[in-house]
Every structure is written in C-alpha cells, then in structure tokens.
Simulated assay, not measured.
Amino acid sequence: MNAAARQNPVFRFAPSPNGPLHLGHALSALLNADMARGAGGRLLLRMEDIDLTRCTPEFEISALGDLEWLGLDFEQPVRRQSEHFPLYRKALDRLTALGLTYPAFMTRGEVRAFVRSEEEAGRSWPRDPDGAPLYPPLDKALSASERRERLETADRHAIRLDMEKALSLLGKPLTFVETGSGKVETLAADPAAWGDVVLWRSDAPSSYHLSVTIDDAKQGVTHVVRGRDLFHATAVHRLLQTLLDLPEPVYHHHRLLTDAQGRKLSKSDGDTGLAELRAAGASPADIRAMVGL
C-alpha cells in the first residue's frame, strides 16, 4: 500500500443518476463512509453522469436526498462527470498520440452477426468477463484512407483502445492491491480479457473506463470501494493508469446484494429503492441492518 493511501486516505462514492438508489447503493455508500471514518480519511461524492440521455437532474436530486437521509456527509462540491468532458478528451488525445486508439464503426448488431458467422463456421469467439463478445479486428485493419472515408460517411462511431499495442508498451505485468477479502493482496490484472475497450462514443463523449480512471486521479482518490461486479474492470483501469502515468489506488470490491433468485439488485430491473423504503417507514438504522452493516 502506497504512502498516500496510508497517510492521506481519500474515499469516494460514485453513483450514476439514472434511476433511484437501492439497497446495493446504500451498502456501497455506507461502507465507503465507515472505511473513511475508520481510516481518518476524506469522503467524496461523484455523479457519474456521462450518459446524458438516461442521467437526469431529477435522479440526482433524489439520490442526494437519500444520502442525506442516511446521515452521510460528503465533502463539497459534488463532482459531476458531465462537467469534465474536455478533461477526458485530453486523456483520449494523449492515448491517440501514442498510436493506441482507432475509430470503430461496427454496430452491436454487426458484431453479433460477425460472431454468429464465426461460430457457425466452427470457430469459437472470445468473450469478456461480462460475457459480451470481444470486438472484431476488422476496423483495426483498415488503411488510413479507408478510415478517412468511413469517418466521412458513417452515421456514428466509437473510439477504441488497441489492446495489443497498449500491452506492448508495458515493461512488466500489471497488478493491483485488493483488500476485499479482508487482507491486503496483490493480484494479477488481465486487461487483455476485455479486448479493445471503448474509450469514446458518439452519443457519450467518454466511457466509464476512461472517465472513472481520470476522475479518481484528479480527485486524489486513494481507496476505491465498490461492488464485486466491477472487480474485473480494475484490470482496464490499471492499464489506463499506467499508460497515462496516473497514481494507483487501493481497491476494495465488496459483496453484492441479491434478490431471492440470486440476481444482483439493479435500478433497471426496478428493485426497491431507498425512497420507497423510506416512505414505508424504514429508518437509516433499518437500512444498515438490511445491508448487513
């Protein structure tokens, strides 16, 4: 564990305001607050609102009300990713200058069709830790003139990281420090498992991977406490930190709350929100008990 993490610990809770907060968010927020308090550290709040379609001021106001009701006190001001797109673009331009990005034009439907044709021909296709097929290499193989032509004619495109080239710049294997098991462990990071990840899309001027990595460094975050569902994404974040000469935080991936069927709680699935529990008479102490703290 680095000296900054020991001497000046900084924690952050970073929800996306695209729906009501639920018990899973409460667990993460409360755990961040408990760990920050125990370490004598700072606690920050960040709104990860790069999705300008689904994230709304109404959901942010609702989230702030829920967090205040839980008794959580975050440093001000709240950081909103939607206010920092130029910062993420600067990082993207740096990666592009290193020759590590390329424009990608295939739609999700085209990727599915390509993978289906490969598998029907008896060739297995790799998938990332979330189960999605890795992006095909067709766009990466385009010539400079072909790319220019596609950029002039395509309705929209993304910018992806050339994972093979990025990994070739590393002088040693990537690792990260993890404390989620209750002990300090140094674990191997395998960003190659994700293939050529998206860094920028036409409908969102950054990606989760890029913006969260830049924000954690910009805010001086030393301890990233988040759900186990993001454990494997840490490999991509460690790669970006290394390529962009950013500091490495300590990671703590906590247990996930699930429903009766073992499914992770989700805003998109309409799982019971904190506001609904609050309206039904639950107290902040009840919420702590419900999430096992």
Rank of each mutant, 00 (worst) to 15 (best):
G270P: 02
K264V: 15
E119F: 09
V291D: 06
L277Q: 04
G99S: 14
P126S: 08
P17D: 01
L52I: 14
L138S: 06
R127E: 12
N2A: 09
T258K: 03
R112K: 10
R54V: 06
L100Q: 11
R147C: 09
L167E: 05
D196N: 11
L64S: 03
V221L: 04
L72P: 08
P247S: 14
A14Y: 10
D93G: 08
V10L: 06
L70P: 13
P173N: 11
A26H: 02
L265Y: 00
P284C: 07
A235P: 02
T272R: 12
T53Q: 15
S202Y: 09
K172C: 07
P9R: 03
F105Q: 05
P129S: 07
N2K: 07
L169F: 09
S181E: 01
H25S: 00
A5H: 02
K172M: 08
A188F: 06
D93K: 03
A280C: 00
S28D: 06
A289C: 07
L64D: 10
P136A: 07
E119Y: 00
A33W: 01
V236D: 06
S28R: 01
T101A: 05
R255M: 11
L174G: 03
L67Y: 07
A282Y: 14
L67Q: 04
E119L: 12
A3F: 10
R12S: 07
D34W: 09
R226G: 04
N8V: 11
I159S: 02
R278D: 00
S168A: 15
D190V: 04
G180P: 08
P57C: 07
C55N: 07
E178M: 11
L27E: 01
R226M: 02
V111I: 15
R201K: 14
T213S: 13
R6W: 02
H237M: 08
L21K: 04
L246R: 08
D93L: 09
L43S: 01
A280G: 06
N8S: 13
D216Y: 07
A5Y: 11
H25P: 01
T153K: 15
V115C: 04
P205G: 13
S28A: 15
P137R: 03
E110Q: 15
E58D: 06
L243K: 09
A275N: 14
Q261N: 14
R147Q: 12
P126A: 05
V177W: 04
F114L: 12
L23Q: 10
R201M: 10
T56Y: 06
V221M: 02
G65V: 11
G281E: 02
L100P: 07
R226T: 01
S117G: 05
H252N: 13
G99E: 11
T53S: 13
A217I: 05
L277W: 08
R42G: 01
I214R: 04
A204D: 09
A280K: 15
H237T: 03
P136F: 15
I61D: 14
M106H: 03
T175L: 08
R54T: 11
R160E: 01
P15A: 02
L30E: 05
L210F: 04
G292H: 05
R54H: 06
P86H: 04
Q261L: 15
E248N: 13
G281L: 08
D51N: 10
L142N: 06
L72C: 05
A285M: 09
T179W: 02
P77H: 00
G273K: 02
M35A: 09
P20W: 12
A132V: 02
